[in-house]
Design a protein around this nucleic acid. Sequence first.
DNA 1: GGTGTGATCGTA
DNA 2: ACGATCACACCA
Length: 221
Amino acid sequence: MTARPLSRRWYAREALVLAPELLNKLLVARDEAGRRRVGRIVEVEAYAGATDPASHAYRGSTARNATMFGPGGHLYVYFTYGMHWCANVVCGPSGTAQAVLIRALEPLAGLDEMRLARGQSATAGPGPAAQSRADRDLCRGPARLAQALAIVGTDDGVDLIRGRIRVLDDGFAPPAHPAQGPRVGISVAAERPWRFWVPDSGWVSASRRRVMPVDSVVATQ
DNA sequence: GGTGTGATCGTA
DNA sequence: ACGATCACACCA
């Protein structure tokens, strides 16, 4: 089956609906050499916009988050901790500033380019046995996958249907029962179980594969 | 496997 | 002042 982009309408749905639907879709970036770096989305987080204190859009539109307030199907890229870029899929009706943070990919193509972009591990020992970064560490984490796909600030606002970076559907269905748990690294609304991942995926950090107790999930939904 | 800490700078 | 984080050191 050939991989095809998704429609603008597909992206116009609520972040909480779209987030699990993005699981198992492909994230594809074309690099300067015309090579494609491809990963399958295995972990995401939903950010609901004005009603979500953890969202960058919670306090309204600014120069930084302007892309979130535009139409769905575009990439919102932000800079954090003074050194990292992270990538989100903007979704929902235009103006609602909803987004889904891409947290991890299973790398499928362009792994050599990804490794080069990520750099050698500082712990790789010297000599012929010096190992380059493990496949597992290429795209596990939002800043790592952005670096692997060379996603930076100039990619903010890119159209995911036609742009340098695209989300494609290759017919691989989302998991029927996605795993669900709390979002990572936030200090407010931390109880909302709005992180979704492919159950048992080895491409998601083991410590993040713990599911939230069912009653607490139900209670906050 | 887990925890703790420093890096580093744009944003509000 | 504080991040939608990461790499590394150290402990188990």
